[in-house]
């Protein structure tokens, strides 16, 4: 997968994208302090979104991680399925965040570099 894919963007586009992302992240950090003075109650809808958005956003990211996986070609999503099962099982068992991430990644790297090497796109 590696290679110099980012050449899809020229330098100006690269800088613009980085700045735009930095702006978005910092908006999420500064907005509450600029919009809601501490002495006034926060609008209920904003508090509601603060409560429900994290779960929805992380679900979106999970789907996002698999956007390039094809069930009908290559390795049919098998290495992903196995590695995800390892991460979930390990995490429910031990609840050690870094352990789950590290072992899951190692399992995935071994799978795509050896077992599923021939079927890779």
């Amino acid at each position: 997968m590696m290679g110099k894919k980012w050449r899809a963007l020229n330098n100006t586009q690269l800088i613009i994208t980085i700045l735009v992302m930095a702006l978005a992240v910092q908006i999420t950090r500064f907005a509450p302090f600029l919009l809601f003075p501490a002495d006034k109650p926060t609008p209920k809808f904003v508090r509601y979104l603060g409560g429900v958005l994290p779960s929805a956003a992380i679900s979106l990211l999970v789907i996002f991680s698999f956007k390039d996986v094809s069930i009908f070609a290559g390795s049919h999503g098998l290495p992903e399925l196995i590695a995800v099962a390892v991460v979930v099982a390990l995490h429910i068992w031990k609840r050690q965040m870094l352990l789950s991430i590290a072992l899951g990644t190692i399992v995935y790297m071994i799978l795509v570099q050896t077992v599923f090497m021939a079927t890779n796109l």
Binding site: V20, T28, A31, V46, G50, L53
Partner: peptide, 24 residues
């Protein structure tokens, strides 16, 4: 990926929306 600053902006906004809650 392809150049898409608006998409990048919106996605980062959403991914990091939880910060709003921390700020509050």
């Amino acid at each position: 990926a392809m150049f898409n600053p608006l998409g990048a902006f919106l996605l980062e906004l959403m991914v990091n929306a939880r910060h709003i809650f921390y700020g509050l």
